[in-house]
Structures are given as C-alpha cells and as structure tokens.
Amino acid sequence: MTSLLQSENLSFSYGDRPILRGVALRLAPGEVVALLGPNGSGKSTLLRCLLGHLPASGTIIWEQRSLADWRRRDLARRVAYLAQSPAWEPEQRVSDVLRMGRSPYLQAFGIESPRDVEVVGQVARALGLADFFDRRMHALSGGQRQLVFLGRCLVQEPRALLLDEPNTFLDLRHQVDLGHRLKDLAKRQGIAVLMASHDLNLAGMFADRLLLLEVGTIAADGPPEEVLRPELLSRVYGLPMERIERTDGKVYVFPTVNGDAAS
C-alpha cells in the first residue's frame, strides 16, 4: 500500500538538546497508529515536526511530496491536527468552532462557499453535534468539547488526523467512545490516524500499530501484541511491568505495584 506519510532519519533539537534522533515512520490510509512513550520522549515534538510547525532535519513526505513543497493551506486540506489543549473562547458557539475547520478553503474576506456550509452540517450530524450547534463552548462538558474539536478537524476533510493526547480531559467512557470513533473514521473513510497517547491499553485496544518512542528514537514499531512486552516497556518507562493475555489474543499491560521493585 502506498504511504500517506513517509519520514526518514528525522531529527530535531531545541538548541543543543536533541529531542528526536533519526526517527523513521510510515502512515498508510485507513491505519490507526498510536504514538507511545514517557513524558519528554518526543511524541508531541514528532507530531509538530510532521506538520511543519518545527523545523526538523531529514525527510518528511506527505502524499509523495516533500513537506517543504506543500503550501500550508493545501496541507491543511489533507492533514488535520488536534492540539493537546485546544484554545477556545467562552463566547464561541459550537458552530463557530466547527466552521473554523473550513479556514483552508475560505475565499478572500473569509467568504464561505455552499460546500463549506454543507461539510460543516455533515460533520455535525455525523458526530451528533447538530443539536448543540448554537451552544456556547463554556456550556459544554469536556467530552462534548473534545468532540467539537474533533469535528473541526473533520471539517477540514483530511486524509490524515494527527492527535496529541486526545484523551487528556476525557473520562473512561468518552475515551472508549473516542477510540471507536477514530477506528470507525479510519475504516469507513480511509482516514489515517496518528495519535500520541499515555494509555497503553487503550492504544492497544484501538490501534492497528503502536510506535514506542524512547528518548527521541523509535524503540518499537509493530502490532500491539508485539510492542506491549513487559521487558521492553519496563526499560522505556523505567517501571516493572506485567502483561495478561486474553483468549482472543488481546494483551493488557500494567505496572507491578505489589513487588519490591515498585515500593
């Protein structure tokens, strides 16, 4: 399958402090990939480099075209990004936030085409946000708000979705709900999802592939059962880990809390 995103030997430093070192990764259409790793391992930085927000060395190729050759507006029609804590104003209504997703399509003076309005309506209906259209952002729960931001990404009609810890402000039910939605988007619309996450098991449940970052390098890249190995995770997270396997092959990992090592 042709890659939507291909990156080789990607490196980035803040001053003389290297954050990413020779990272290689691919992303295919319809694939859900979770980006794992401890705090400071470079997950957010990697996402921002792939979007061109930070100047990395190495190659980054979106749809057979080098990142440097993309106009920002054109890239925004292919790739959407959900920041870790998206900015919002209390005065904004749900419709205001959703419409912002059409920014890469707007004409001069911010004029919208009929297509712009149509897409906003479609996405709102698909996410069950249509009834909230006139609600102000401050009147929504954290879960609803996150759904609105996901909606803004989808309004961009992207082929890839880059999410930076989208579960941060969500309770368990909403985390699982988001996982289902992302998987559904990938399977039905062929959208590629690359998502930084701290939740190993949730990532294992919904991702086709896990990418484990260890101080700026890729420590493992493969299906969940390959990457969620106690010895590997113990090394990367510096914590003794255990694993249980279900009969259907799904694996779950958790830190050892009652052993000597954890006390």
Partner: peptide
C-alpha cells in the same frame, strides 16, 4: 485567536 500550532494546522 488559536494557538500558533492550531492556526498553522488550519492553513494560516
């Protein structure tokens, strides 16, 4: 009015 990263990702 968004963060710089979000604004860039929206093509601005």
């Amino acid at each position: 009015m968004l963060s710089e990263g979000e604004a860039q990702a929206l093509g601005t």
